[in-house]
Structure formats: structure tokens, C-alpha cells
Design a binder for these strands. Structure first.
Length: 263
DNA sequence: ATGGTAGTCACACTA
């Protein structure tokens, strides 16, 4: 079973690429971020025509996440718990039946947090605290559980082309990485790192300043796995070639392959 | 180069 995450940076602008990639890659579950669409505006018919169920948690203009899946989810939950006043659509959770039980998969779009001296950075850190509290509770279920998405976190220096450029950025500040480590240390495995010794590995290349042709990238899209999901992890891959397509997203798909069979 | 590019939406805002 292939489970992928991809920040597509606007589903309306990326629908042709998304359909082409679904046909090429054939993932079973896809976690999308930055759909930048309300639920009614999401191009669900074209995606359903390829055999996917579509669940969205949209927002006008910004943010927005979605779950595409060959299996129909048994349960879907929208929004990260912990702050009823948070109106940004950054989190959706689906539960799927597989042979022998369920898997729980979340698509998350963690706040960017820049500029650091604005209210955006404390919002990011508060969001990470909420994610940690939520994840801690979910781990008690002892299920295969995958937190997939755009974390806007560069975990280590070697996940970045030039740390001097990023060291004071909200994606790399010590407090940001400490929050990421706290989450991981609850018992999660960074799937890409667990299956590859290659450094560096990138999932994002900025549109600006020729970052893509110069391979000036960062690794910020992650599949974080509970112990029960890690037990079933077979391999991971980063679909880097998609960054060279016409009108690309600045992020590429990250894919985990697992030894789960559909129910 | 106190720049650069892209998406959304209709003016800046976000990244």
C-alpha cells in the first residue's frame, strides 16, 4: 500500500499535474496540502473518475488540506483539536479498514511561521504544541498511525542546501526543531530518514532565484509513523522528477510503501 | 538585486 503526501500549492492550478501523477504513481492514499480552495471548488469529479474518494477541509484562498483514497474512509475528522478559535484549515484525519484492523492517516499543513518577529511564529509553536498533545492521545490507541504533510520544519542541517541561509528562519530555529523532536520522541519514526542514508534529500525547491536548477532545496515534507506503522514500512521515495514538470508545485510528492492489505 | 516567483482573487497576502 502506497501512502503519499504532497503540497500541491493550489489544486486548481495543479489539477492536470495531480491527475497525471495519480495515473503514473497509483498511490492508495494521498495527503494533499495547500489546496487553496473551498470544499465546493475542489475538482473532485476528475479525481473520482480515477477511482478515488475525496475528503477535503478547505478554506478560501489559503491553506486547505485533503485526503484522496482508493478505500472509502470509515471515519473522517476535520481540524486539529485544542483551539476552537483557530479558523485555518490545516488538518484532516481519515481512518481506513485494512486486513487485520485499521490505519489512521492525517494530512497536515503546519504553519510556516515567518516572519519570526510577527504573531505568525508563536502561532506555529502553539500549533506544534497542539499537534503534540493530539498525537500523544492517538498513540495510546496503538494503531498504525501516520502523520503526513508539509511540516515547514527542516529537521537537521543536512536537510538543507545551505544552513547559513536558513538558520534564522522559522523553519529551522532551535525552538522549531525542538518542537519537532518532542513530537518525534513520543515514538514516531521519520519514514524517509529511516529508509535512506542519503544526504541531502530535498522535497521543496523555492520558485525564486533559480533554486531548482541549482538544487537549492530543503526537506520539509515528512511521513511520521507510529511504531505500528513503522513495523509495516517497506520503503520510501521522493518523486523529484515532478518538480521539472510544466507549472510545477514548489513541493514534490513523498511516498511510503507499507505492507498493508486492503480489508 | 532591500531583489527574486507563484497562486488566489480581485487588493494585497501568503509562502
Amino acid at each position: 500500500m502506497k501512502i503519499a503526501t504532497w503540497n500541491i500549492n493550489g489544486v486548481k492550478a495543479r489539477i492536470d499535474s495531480l491527475l497525471a501523477w495519480l495515473k503514473e504513481s497509483g498511490p492508495d492514499i494521498v495527503c494533499l496540502q495547500e489546496i487553496k480552495s473551498v470544499d465546493d471548488g475542489f475538482p473532485r469529479l476528475e479525481i473520482e473518475a480515477l477511482g478515488y474518494h475525496v475528503e477535503t477541509h478547505g478554506q478560501k484562498g489559503f491553506n486547505g488540506v485533503a485526503l484522496l483514497s482508493k478505500l472509502r474512509p470509515d471515519e473522517v475528522n476535520r481540524g486539529l483539536p485544542g483551539d476552537d478559535t483557530d479558523e485555518q484549515s490545516r488538518f484532516i484525519e481519515g481512518v481506513f479498514s485494512v486486513e487485520g484492523g485499521v490505519i489512521r492517516v492525517c494530512s497536515l499543513y503546519l504553519p510556516n511561521g515567518n516572519p519570526v518577529d510577527s504573531e505568525k511564529y508563536p502561532y506555529k509553536l502553539a500549533w506544534m504544541r497542539r499537534l503534540e498533545a493530539y498525537a500523544k492521545q492517538r498513540l495510546l490507541l496503538e494503531e498504525p498511525f501516520i502523520l503526513a504533510g508539509d511540516y515547514n520544519v527542516i529537521p537537521e542541517e543536512h536537510d538543507c542546501w545551505d544552513i547559513k541561509v536558513w538558520q534564522n528562519d522559522a523553519l529551522f530555529l532551535p525552538e522549531t526543531r525542538a518542537a519537532f523532536r518532542r513530537l518525534r520522541n513520543l515514538g514516531f519514526t521519520d519514514a524517509v530518514r529511516a529508509t535512506s542514508d542519503t544526504v541531502p534529500l530535498y522535497t521543496f525547491w523555492d520558485y525564486q532565484a533559480g533554486c531548482w536548477p541549482k538544487n537549492f532545496g530543503i526537506r520539509i515534507d515528512h511521513l511520521m509513523l507510529s511504531p505500528e506503522a513503522t513495523d509495516r514500512l517497506v520503503s520510501t521515495s521522493i518523486d523529484k522528477h515532478v518538480r521539472a514538470w510544466e507549472k510545477p508545485s514548489d513541493h514534490v510528492p513523498v511516498i511510503g510503501t507499507f505492507a498493508f492489505a486492503p480489508a
